[in-house]
């Protein structure tokens, strides 16, 4: 997957390049709107991460120019301005998603994956990771053939984690998807939930599946796979 990052702040561009390369993307960085537009015209990218506030040709203009040429590459907009007007304007101009700075890198990866996945088939049911099986239709979970006794909340948490198997999910993303809460309360409220779920999923089994990425979030994956 080849991603173009259009970002004028060298620090921000630097960590985006590093983080995305480590997530196995091929990354090109453009430092202003004109260069970004040129690169996007010359190469077929799988996705574009576009800062809206750029010197010279700003992100809105780049977006308009690209969409004007019939370019359908998914575009994820970044901006420090967390304003509804900017968001609406960006989406109107054909942006596919939007992320306000500062953001969690895990969230950027998740959104980028969602954009790249768009149009592809959804995961099958039940979903299995190692010996854990989750039936999202029947709303049951089994580990090693043994049925797990989960509360609805625990099941929702497990479902969200397993649907994004192998992806690091930030606390904010989990709170937003499972509890519909926009803000991280900065208490260890989520940690307690994950620990409970972990106890039920991993108790009596050797292999840990739910991993804590300290300071970032959680991931469900089979380390030996």
């Amino acid at each position: 997957m080849r991603v173009l990052v259009v970002e004028d702040d060298p620090d921000m561009a630097g960590f985006l390049r590093k983080g995305l390369r480590e997530a196995a993307y091929a990354v090109d960085v453009a430092v202003d709107g004109r260069e970004g537009h040129q690169l996007a015209c010359d190469h077929p990218y799988d996705a574009i991460v576009l800062d809206l506030m750029l010197p010279g040709m700003d992100g809105f203009e780049v977006l308009r120019a690209l969409r004007g040429r019939g370019e359908r590459t998914p575009v994820l907009c970044l901006t420090a301005r967390d304003s509804v007007e900017d968001r609406v304007r960006g989406l109107d101009l054909g942006a596919d998603d939007y992320l306000a700075k500062p953001f969690n890198f895990a969230e950027l990866l998740a959104r980028l994956r969602a954009l790249l996945r768009r149009g592809q088939t959804v995961v099958s049911n039940p979903i299995a990771v190692a010996d854990l099986t989750v039936d999202v239709v029947a709303r049951t979970a089994k580990r090693g053939g043994q049925r797990l006794d989960l509360s609805p909340t625990e099941f929702a948490l497990l479902e969200y984690l397993i649907r994004h198997e192998g992806e690091v999910l930030s606390r904010t993303m989990i709170l937003e998807h499972v509890w519909d809460m926009k803000q991280d309360p900065l208490t260890n409220v989520l940690e307690v939930h994950v620990n409970r779920l972990r106890k039920k999923v991993e108790h009596g089994f050797d292999k840990p599946l739910i991993h804590t990425i300290r300071g970032v979030g959680y991931v469900l994956r089979d380390d030996n796979a």
Binding site: W179, M181, V192, H193
Partner: peptide, 13 residues
């Protein structure tokens, strides 16, 4: 209810 559900385990702990 959702808020209580979210904070329940923490409070219990």
């Amino acid at each position: 209810r959702d808020v209580v559900d979210l904070y329940g385990p923490l409070a219990e702990e």
